[in-house]
Design a protein around this nucleic acid. Sequence first.
DNA 1: CTGAAAGCGCTAACAA
DNA 2: TTGTTAGCGCTTTCAG
Lengths: 362, 362
Amino acid sequence: MASSESEAGQGVERRNGPRARAVGIAEVAALAGVSIATVSRALAIPERVTPATRARVLEAVRQTGYTPNVAARSLRARRSMLVLVVVPNIITPFFAELLLGVDQALSAEGYGMLIGNLHDRAEKEQHLVDLVFAGGADGVVLLNGEAPKAPTRSLADSGVPIVAVSSPPPFAAPLVLVRQREAAAAVAEHLLELGHRRLGYVAGPARNYIEHERWVGFTARLAAAGIAATEVTRFSGNFRVEAGIAAGRRFLALAAADRPTAVFAISDEMAVGFMTTVRAAGVRVPDDVSVVGFDGILMADYCQPRLTTIRQPREEMGRAAAELLLRLIAGEPIPPEERVQRLDGVLRLGASSGPAPAGGRR
Amino acid sequence: MASSESEAGQGVERRNGPRARAVGIAEVAALAGVSIATVSRALAIPERVTPATRARVLEAVRQTGYTPNVAARSLRARRSMLVLVVVPNIITPFFAELLLGVDQALSAEGYGMLIGNLHDRAEKEQHLVDLVFAGGADGVVLLNGEAPKAPTRSLADSGVPIVAVSSPPPFAAPLVLVRQREAAAAVAEHLLELGHRRLGYVAGPARNYIEHERWVGFTARLAAAGIAATEVTRFSGNFRVEAGIAAGRRFLALAAADRPTAVFAISDEMAVGFMTTVRAAGVRVPDDVSVVGFDGILMADYCQPRLTTIRQPREEMGRAAAELLLRLIAGEPIPPEERVQRLDGVLRLGASSGPAPAGGRR
DNA sequence: CTGAAAGCGCTAACAA
DNA sequence: TTGTTAGCGCTTTCAG
């Protein structure tokens, strides 16, 4: 096969500096024999020009390949038609579908999606805040409520609409969230029904809103069944696979009699890491220990055994947030009851959870 | 716990229309007692103003919270400081790390990352092309070589630098790619060493560049061992999990004696789908059939058994592409030999591949 | 070293 | 309906 090398030679080497000259509105106007204002109108408010004029303009546009310059338009109209989406960490599988939902809603309205990845803190965050203050985005979506910080000012003061997803940011903002407590309670319910009484919990980062909500929901339901939160074996974590693996190791280090018979990991990644680790050491899932995750990511369906988890409606969350944001951008007042939108997570049974082992009750 | 409802009330309802007034350069100039030109210079070319002036300006900037407006700057400078990254499908796990690499390189140079998701063709693609022609991006990264199409014009004619990743787009462009053939040959090599002679292949879409390269590399190595391409059992596919599942079903439908003893799925997602499906039917992996994937996504590490696969250096690919693009944007001439950059995929042994079963040789 | 002034390309008054 | 004109906020000659 011919090497693809040959396909890679650009015919023309690009010259220094800015773009090749683009056709401007003046060129179109000249060709159509009208003023530039008419061209602008023919394009923006077609009903305000004669059909004949419009036709001439459109034809000229077609011939010249004219596309209105976005910078000029933004400057004039004072809006960028861009939305900044702040992601705590772009490589977490959980966020991809969220972005899909956001993207769908945005592009349906002609908005572009700018990604702000918080991966490496400090200057990056400052930069994102500056961008917004500079008019670089008409609105902001904060995933998992993570708001970029700048030493001197808050995003909230930019005057740009902000919508948060999953957890409240450090300032007031409309919110799309999942009923975390109810979902976590459903996990507890499920495990209790299976007869588990000795439970484990792989946590999220300390002081994390989501972590807190799930813990509260989980333990509240357990309490109702007479199991105190202090009886739950807590493994620290941070949502990532590695944390699940570490939790698995700590589980294995426990005397068999002290091991929980069921473990709720508050992210699928951790659940899978946990499960993989303990299984590798010969612990059977779910016979020896049941495992339940949270999120419903793709991997949950294809690990062994298939993970019991809470499915969060990610695409819908993203879409809801973006739609809310677009209304805000349009200046539409949002009634108070719509400022917080709640969606449900649903328990999806897999094969990783099963009845408590015979000796499971203490 | 108090409901988070209370956190969601924006203190002030946003007014209709454009943003709240932002501080402009004039305000800073007035406060500093200099002309706007001086403010501009103090910020852009600090060494061309007196230290004293600079200090006064900076102080005024600090006090006012001034941030130069990006639209005005773009208009004047004729560059947007934005790069458009075109993704065939944002929810494919494979792309996340690629985006991470791209993002790192871009933000290191102060560029923003605009995501163009091709998910739902037609108008969307047109829109992306228009955006670029409108000066909305200073460069474009095409992941998997997927170029958005517009009925009348090609991205390539926009005059904006373009770099493709993984496969060549329909026009000439600098390219970052992985040595697909060598990697696929390494898979063949690995399976041959294990004694497999009856092989299966879960393909990508017809006429797909990557599919083609992997097939060629795979079968070339087999041919060298005396196995004709026609002897390989081919399952159609499209990179997605579902295709792997379908392939698994077709595998199961084969008489045991006709089943390949090893299957190479050209994506991890398909490999996992395949593996999950055949295992569910009692086929042992790798005892009855070895499975090898391609990509090295997170899921490959946590499925059962751990997948043997080719790890593509995704983050590096993304970074390399973005860096190449930035050089192009800067007007730097790229020597011909750098217009195609090749990286290596590396075979990562898992537990999904093993010796051919005793009766495996024909 | 600093200021005045001319636009970048477009839209939106305001006139005609 | 269409044209003229004044900026949007900034950078950058060109003078001073």
